[in-house]
């Protein structure tokens, strides 16, 4: 099981702050994961419609969409950051 955590408008559109999920075997990279999540319902589709702008962190470290997920414990999915 992998823990997925969502923030800001990604969280609002998916409708929950986090969830545990068994990822299908063919989900190898971050890009695969975002494509898979998009098939899970309207909220996911709305959140990830423009997947190229979505930022992802594996075990709380920023990664590119080409990154392999491996045995990630926690994957954070969120919009571009606007702090400061």
């Amino acid at each position: 099981m992998t823990k997925l955590v969502y923030f800001a408008w990604v969280r609002e559109r998916i409708g929950k702050p986090e969830e545990e999920m068994e990822l299908p075997g063919d989900v190898k990279t971050v890009r695969d994961l975002l494509s898979h999540l998009k098939t899970l319902g309207e909220g996911y589709e709305a959140a990830l419609q423009y997947a190229e702008v979505i930022r992802v962190a594996i075990n709380q470290e920023h990664v590119e969409h080409s990154e392999t997920i491996g045995d990630a414990r926690e994957i954070g999915i969120f919009p571009p950051m606007t702090g400061g």
Partner: peptide, 24 residues
């Protein structure tokens, strides 16, 4: 910090509305 620390801002309007998330 502004471009890579994971913080996000949401605006609340003076008219009581919950506004949009600030765009990067």
């Amino acid at each position: 910090l502004k471009t890579s620390a994971p913080f996000w801002k949401k605006e609340h309007g003076a008219d009581g509305s919950t506004g949009d998330w600030v765009a990067a």
